[in-house]
Design a protein around this nucleic acid. Structure first.
Lengths: 179, 179
DNA sequence: GTCCTATATATGACTAGTCTTATATTAGCA
DNA sequence: TGCTAATATAAGACTAGTCATATATAGGAC
């Protein structure tokens, strides 16, 4: 249940509501690390609260629905620290495009090229959104520890997209030659 | 429901049982593209059959449980061809390690290094299993179209692992210097 | 003799995540 | 006047995937 730990981490940085988590964290950069929809965020908040890892105070608003502001408890902080140091299993990446290529021998080159070009465009778009996330360069010694670690995480995202782009470009060249 | 299409593809190559699919396909190379457990394979076979995309004949065995040998129907073959040409959404990669790094500022360097080293070892192991999958080199002109496409898919898997290894090695160096 | 493995299929219980809709109020726009 | 967007939380229905267990038979290991 890593989503629970993402939320613990975010709440430790700043106490906030489920709505804030969704609009300011998950819809922004966290989406690249661990996408989550609104329903899942609220359910995980409920679970974290019943576990005693977070608690909340209700801020009564007249003109808007009340806000439940969550913060990490002592037990929650201990759990986060424990989890942060525990090696997690490798992520399972299920890649529809690779499956398609694996069975694509029956398709004409032009159909394969269309698949590859569509994937290339999608990865180019993703790389450009990753590049738009602000972060100091990897070897900037004035950056804080937080900034450096975030830059490091972001760096892998960008490199992964670049790996895709390089591979797709070569694959397209391969099929363009034989076509 | 890509697992359904993986199974359609595999059955189109060779009619076989759920047990065969599990032990000879999913436990071997397909696991790298689309891992699936036994329960999910059998349930998907049921669903594919009720959709009319596959059918089966029962081979009665005296000394062993009977075998249900599945094959792709005409409708199933048409569905596979359609799916193979349809652009699929980018895979969602949820990376626990990146989440950990993102919130790791509170940890000492040594704890971060331990995380990075464990991940490096895991990715080294994965790369070596990927490298053990037999496939002709990418530019071997004597390879069949099937072999070439499989080599291409495998090539991305290997490059992805190499990208991880490079990034992890640099990250480890970064923290070893500051430590 | 008992345990484990292989062969083969099936199902129950569960987790994580998605999609949709409900509720309630305010503000802005056309 | 009616529509939409923003602010907030909640829950129902569903899908995909995981984990464990059940069933049945044969053969080999200890």
């Amino acid at each position: 249940m890593s989503l629970a730990h993402v939320i613990l981490g975010l709440l430790q940085q700043q106490e906030q509501t489920g709505y804030d988590l969704k609009t300011e964290c998950f819809d922004q950069c966290i989406a690249h690390l661990w996408p989550a929809d609104q329903a899942q965020i609220y359910r995980t908040l409920d679970k974290l609260e019943s576990q005693g890892w977070i608690d909340c105070t209700v801020e009564i608003q007249r003109d808007r629905p009340n806000r439940k502001i969550y913060r990490v408890t002592t037990a929650g902080a201990a759990e986060l620290t424990r989890w942060l140091q525990t090696h997690q299993p490798l992520p399972i990446a299920r890649e529809p495009l690779l499956v398609q290529l694996y069975f694509a021998a029956q398709l004409p080159d032009e159909a394969i090229l269309q698949l590859l070009r569509a994937e290339l465009a999608a990865h180019q778009a993703k790389l450009s959104t990753c590049n738009q996330i602000e972060a100091p360069p990897l070897h900037d010694s004035t950056a804080s520890r937080e900034q450096m670690l975030r830059r490091l995480a972001l760096e892998l995202l960008c490199r992964r997209e670049q790996t895709y782009l390089d591979w797709l470009t070569e694959a397209i060249a391969l099929f363009s030659n034989t076509a």
